[in-house]
């Protein structure tokens, strides 16, 4: 039975294979070009990602959200972010001030809201962890 099985590939098949590989490469290259030092600001609410922005200078906004205890206000200014007005009891989050580099975090404990800066960085000075 096997001697009849001819692997007949048509022209269209090769077109398809080529298209797939081209698409894969295209996306890959596009992403590789984007990879240069792209940092993201993330807002986490109670262990879940609430919002994420590119910190490439394009995003300028204020985010207000209901934390676990009170309302929390976060300011995103291009390449940095911080807690501004928060109704929480200790205001430690506001005292942290602006964060902008990969690895930095700011937390509003009573509200379980955490600001994180993530992304790839070629910054040789980047720390692995900050002891607070």
């Amino acid at each position: 039975m096997r001697n009849n099985t001819k692997l007949r590939l048509r022209w269209g098949d090769f077109l398809i294979f080529l298209a797939i590989i081209a698409a894969a490469c295209g996306i890959w290259i596009h992403l590789a070009m984007l990879q240069t030092d792209q940092t993201y600001g993330e807002i986490w609410l109670d262990g879940e990602l609430y919002q994420q922005f590119r910190l490439d200078g394009s995003v300028h906004k204020t985010v207000q959200l209901e934390g676990k205890a009170t309302e929390v206000t976060i300011e995103v200014d291009g390449t940095q972010m911080r807690f501004t007005d928060s109704q929480c009891t200790d205001h430690t989050c506001e005292q942290t001030g602006w964060i902008s580099r990969v690895g930095q975090t700011a937390v509003c404990l009573p509200n379980r809201v955490m600001l994180k800066i993530t992304g790839s960085t070629t910054d040789a000075d980047a720390v692995d962890v900050i002891v607070q």
Binding site: R82, Q95, T96, G97, W98, I99, R101, G103, Q104, T105, A106, D125, A126, V127, D128, V129, I130, V131, Q132
Partner: peptide, 18 residues
């Protein structure tokens, strides 16, 4: 080794030394 940052007392979100 790992690089551990020490918080800057003037800028608690940032580190000033490692």
């Amino acid at each position: 080794p790992w690089k551990v940052g020490i918080t800057d007392p003037d800028n608690p979100g940032d580190s000033f030394a490692t």
